[in-house]
Simulated assay, not measured.
Amino acid sequence: MSLASLGISSSFIIGCCIAAQIARRVSAKVLNRGGIVPVLINEAIAAAELCACCFELIIVADNFGVATYAVFLFMLTVWWGKVWGDASACPYTHMEDVLEGRTSFKEMALRTWAELMGGCCVYRIVQVFWWLEFAETHKGRAFGECSADLQVNVYLGAVIEGVATLLCRLASKALSEKEPKFSSYIDSFVGTSLVVAAFNFSGGYFNPVLATALKWGCRGHTNLEHIIVYWIGACVGAVLSVPIFKLTPVRRFLLGDEEKPKQA
């Protein structure tokens, strides 16, 4: 495929990021800072940005390879970590907050709903862009039937998504506590590496909202199988990260000497 097509995909992704940032700025000025509404708007914007970019990353991966896809994903995750603020565009982070007592079940449900709305609705914008066929890589993609990325048994896929999500969350928690230099880059590298490792097995989504926006109803798995792999698998992995991270051997392994017991 030509570099012109890659340039068009890159321009679309950059445009999505700019549009989302403008939406965040407008939202911050128009809405009051208090209350749940600004929080939900920010989650919806973040989810829309995430899913719009990842729709185009599918085009990049299919036509320019997983290595190119990984470079784009790494740069995007670094960017999102800097601009999203309290938004996560991912429901299991709120489940973790419920377990830790930092938020309520109601807020978790509302944030998840906002993320699903933002992530799923943005496809219509992507579809129009693909329909215009500015790039040869977009030909036939706007209304073509999608295929599932799950290439293994459903339960193995759930384990892959769950274990990888668990590892991602443990790494993020450790980096959040230690705050090393370039922690955002390290976190993005770990996440991207795990996505690439799982890419040819489950797709490496590690985010139920992202998986649902991109692959719900696609040929290759039933809706129940989708829920088992991408919702139950990922959410169980994330929830398990909360008690596992509190285990002394795990903290000692991840955090180093500062977690060793003090000598009497």
Rank of each mutant, 00 (worst) to 15 (best):
K106T: 07
W84T: 04
G7Q: 12
L156Q: 05
I13S: 01
R169V: 11
T68Y: 11
G118T: 04
L150N: 02
V195H: 04
A4V: 14
T93L: 13
G118S: 07
T248Y: 11
C51Q: 04
I36C: 07
A89D: 07
R252P: 01
K262L: 15
M117N: 02
S5L: 10
L50N: 01
C235L: 12
Y69K: 04
S147I: 11
Y185D: 10
Y205S: 02
I59M: 13
Q151R: 15
N223M: 09
R252W: 15
R252N: 09
S183E: 14
G256F: 14
C51K: 02
N42E: 12
L240C: 13
T77D: 06
S147C: 11
E56L: 12
G237A: 09
R252K: 12
A213Q: 03
D187G: 10
S27K: 08
V190A: 10
I18K: 06
L247M: 15
F253S: 04
S184Q: 12
G119F: 08
L150A: 03
A114H: 05
A23D: 12
C218Y: 06
A238R: 03
A264Q: 14
R33D: 14
F105H: 08
F12D: 03
R141W: 07
T103M: 12
A52R: 00
F72K: 01
S104D: 11
I36M: 14
L170R: 02
L31V: 04
R219H: 13
L194W: 11
G85S: 10
V242S: 06
A234C: 10
W130L: 07
P243Q: 14
E100R: 06
A164L: 15
C54I: 08
V66W: 10
W130Q: 03
Q263M: 14
V83S: 12
L31D: 03
E100I: 04
S27F: 11
N200P: 01
C51E: 09
L240P: 00
A52P: 00
A164S: 11
L132E: 06
S27I: 04
A238M: 09
F253W: 12
G65S: 13
L57S: 09
R169S: 08
D257L: 13
L167M: 12
I18V: 15
L132V: 11
E177C: 09
G15F: 13
L57W: 13
S188Q: 10
E96S: 05
K178E: 14
K178Y: 11
V239C: 10
C121T: 05
A171E: 12
V190Q: 07
G65H: 14
A61N: 05
V26C: 08
G203I: 13
V229T: 02
A70M: 10
G233D: 05
A142G: 02
V239A: 11
E133W: 03
P249H: 07
H94F: 14
I13G: 00
S188L: 10
G15R: 09
G7T: 09
Q127L: 04
A174C: 08
G162R: 05
S5R: 04
K215Q: 10
V229C: 03
V126L: 02
